[in-house]
Design a protein around this nucleic acid. Structure first.
Lengths: 187, 187
DNA sequence: CCAAACATGTAACGGGTTACATGATTAC
DNA sequence: GTAATCATGTAACCCGTTACATGTTTGG
């Protein structure tokens, strides 16, 4: 039950239409909570029905017409409640690790290239983060109000750094198992 | 679409009943792919229907009677296919990070204690991993066949280490924002 | 005999994904 | 006018969660 709270957070930062939210869930917010436009419209409907957000009055509301939302007091209260409430970490589900375990049984054919591809993806993501850090939190720009935002960004950077390091180790390990000639299939 | 493949991997490692699988998904496999018994029974039914696994013949199959499964050739082939196939990393969804971002808008009240609780949870998980590492991969015990399993475990250890480090930093940051007297609510 | 533990399920529901539908605005 | 783009939606499906149901074996 986090999507509504992600939307409330986004709308408190800046009132938006569904499409604008979708765009923001592809960038900053999407770095730690992604959502498709279908999810967002469905959830906006519920939040409006439940009195947590409202659509700003438009002259002629209709399908295809831009609808801007902002957060009502009840929405802000609900977000504050949820933020302070304890939640256990979600159960782990990492397909790539699972595939390594599977490879121990059915063979490592093809996995090495895939791991290298993931290294590249994580490197790209890390570069994005570092660019944002330099732009938004460079020397002399770290305003006190942005401390939490910077903290979150550093978390993303550390996370990507972890992936790159571990995946690189995994590639080396597979290399030793497979030998220099390439994959051998069934181990 | 990873649950069936997690089950196939588990069954190839060792043919099991539904309940045994459930137990294993609470320990080793569950460290990177968790599943409830309801999920497991539902999925075992589908895998059997699709000819990927079979229930070992029992004299009188009935509800409440133990049913042991093992993997058919088609199941092994499907697992090998899936393991080698490219898959993009899943979209990020981290509620704790989201809550930090929300806290930047509605205030940090209560969050510090929650972060400290998460640090404790991750420390405990890390201790489990390190215990397993010492038991299974201690000096002189690192057989070549277990290289991949050890690699996966080191990944878990690095991941937990990342969380502990970042969350500790987050606690300090909140401490500075809130001051020594405690939370102040709305920032 | 009865309780506890073992063991296998069913049903309902919400979230996330994919595919598709429809209307409005803008640029050519 | 019409094609592209902006913008909001609907429908169907599967996965994961929660709650509940039912039968079997074991120990006292």
């Amino acid at each position: 039950m986090s999507l509504p709270h992600a939307i409330l957070t986004a709308l408190l930062e800046k009132p938006s239409s569904g499409l604008e939210l979708t765009r923001r869930f592809d960038r900053s917010i999407g770095y730690f909570w992604s959502a498709s436009h279908q999810q967002i419209y469905r959830e906006l409907g519920r939040l409006e029905r439940d009195g947590l957000v409202r659509a700003l009055p438009a002259e002629k509301p209709a399908r295809g017409r831009r609808k801007e939302y902002d957060v009502l007091p009840a929405g802000r209260a609900e977000l504050a409640r949820w933020t302070a409430e304890p939640h256990d970490p979600r159960p782990q589900r990492d397909p790539l690790t699972l595939r390594l375990r599977a490879a121990a049984v059915v063979g490592t054919a093809g996995l090495r290239a895939e791991l290298e591809r993931h290294v590249r993806l994580h490197r790209r993501r890390l570069a994005e983060y570092e660019e944002i850090e330099e732009r938004d939190f460079g020397p002399g720009r770290d305003a006190a109000a942005d401390r939490l935002r910077h903290l979150v960004l550093r978390g993303g950077i550390a996370q990507e750094t972890f992936w790159i390091g571990w995946l690189t180790e995994a590639v080396e390990e597979l290399g030793e198992l497979e030998g220099p000639e390439g994959p051998e299939g069934q181990a």
